[in-house]
Write a protein that binds this DNA or RNA. Structure first.
Length: 277
DNA sequence: AGAAGGACCTGCACGC
DNA sequence: TGCGTGCAGGTCCTTC
């Protein structure tokens, strides 16, 4: 499912339904071992903590947790990465447990928070915070707020293609395959161009295009390709605005030439040979 | 050190 | 109908 705009909608809606609630019993499937802690350690540590806030950090969903005292001090974080097919659901415990459910947290409000991930590319992690500065920062810079100069500096001297650079989460976090292709089309940049060879002016156009596409997609509830739905089961609408992504062989909306497909960094890459130079 | 490519999974659409 | 192939919103690890 998820790139920044899809992930953005999830914590907003989950937050509204779980904020202030205490985590009760925790069940975890034999999913892959969580990052840096064991499965049983994570389950034990989560039980009893209060959810103070749920928010997005790159493509990660961060649950800020307190021990439940009056101070509301954040002492731990539960971090969920949805991978390709992960979903977070807040449901009545009576509802049947869906196939590929890997985590289920009982909440004091009476509902259950469930993590479902058929393809198992997602990831769970638990962090204990000794000082607030340890707070989970995400791997790279935030594309929606990065300053112009910082954006240009990210790509300086890099030989890899601009498409691969956009997908690299240690540079910018949150950009995935759809919005990399869509922003490169809107900026008129060929995805194969070496990132370090693009002029500052072209990089600034890319920054504008990327931010525009991401904001637009957030406003439309993300892109629903195949079966993506958010925590409320609602579909996004941004897929209607896709100009190149998954439009191989269809006419370019600008020039009418056929959209091409190639593979960059192992990912399907869609572009217009005529409009992107 | 940076970059490329395979590995990890299930499910679906397609063609034979 | 059924099977094989290729493709899918993402990282992560190994190799060069």
């Amino acid at each position: 499912m998820p790139e920044l705009p899809e992930v953005e909608t999830v914590p907003n809606r989950v937050d509204a339904r779980v904020r202030g609630q205490r985590i009760g019993s925790v069940w975890l499937s034999r999913y892959k071992e969580p990052f840096k802690t064991s499965r049983t350690e994570m389950a034990d540590a989560l039980a009893g903590l209060r959810i103070e806030r749920v928010r997005r950090e790159g493509k990660h969903i961060v649950f800020d947790l307190s021990s439940g005292g009056c101070s509301h001090q954040i002492t731990a974080q539960w971090v969920v990465h949805l991978g390709m097919t992960g979903r977070l659901l807040v449901l009545s415990p009576e509802l049947p447990v869906e196939k590929h459910t890997h985590a289920s947290l009982a909440l004091s409000g009476g509902r259950e928070l469930r993590f479902v991930d058929p393809r198992r590319f997602g990831r769970l992690a638990f962090y204990r915070l000794l000082i607030a500065a340890d707070s989970f920062p995400g791997p790279g810079r935030e594309p929606l707020t990065i300053a112009k100069d910082d954006f240009i500096a990210l790509f300086r001297g890099r030989k890899l293609s601009i498409k691969a650079a956009l997908l690299n989460q240690t540079l910018l976090h949150g950009v995935g395959n759809i919005y990399a292709d869509e922003s490169l089309f809107r900026a008129g940049i060929r995805p194969t161009r070496p990132a370090g060879r693009l002029s500052p002016a072209r990089l600034l156009r890319l920054r504008e295009a990327l931010q525009h596409v991401l904001r637009e997609a957030i406003a439309r509830g993300g892109s629903s390709v195949s079966d993506y739905v958010d925590a409320n089961g609602e579909k996004g609408l941004f897929q209607l605005e896709h100009r190149v992504y998954m439009r191989t062989g269809q006419p370019c909306v600008t020039c009418g030439k056929l959209i091409q497909r190639t593979v960059i960094a192992g990912r399907g890459t869609h572009y217009c040979l005529h409009c992107q130079r």
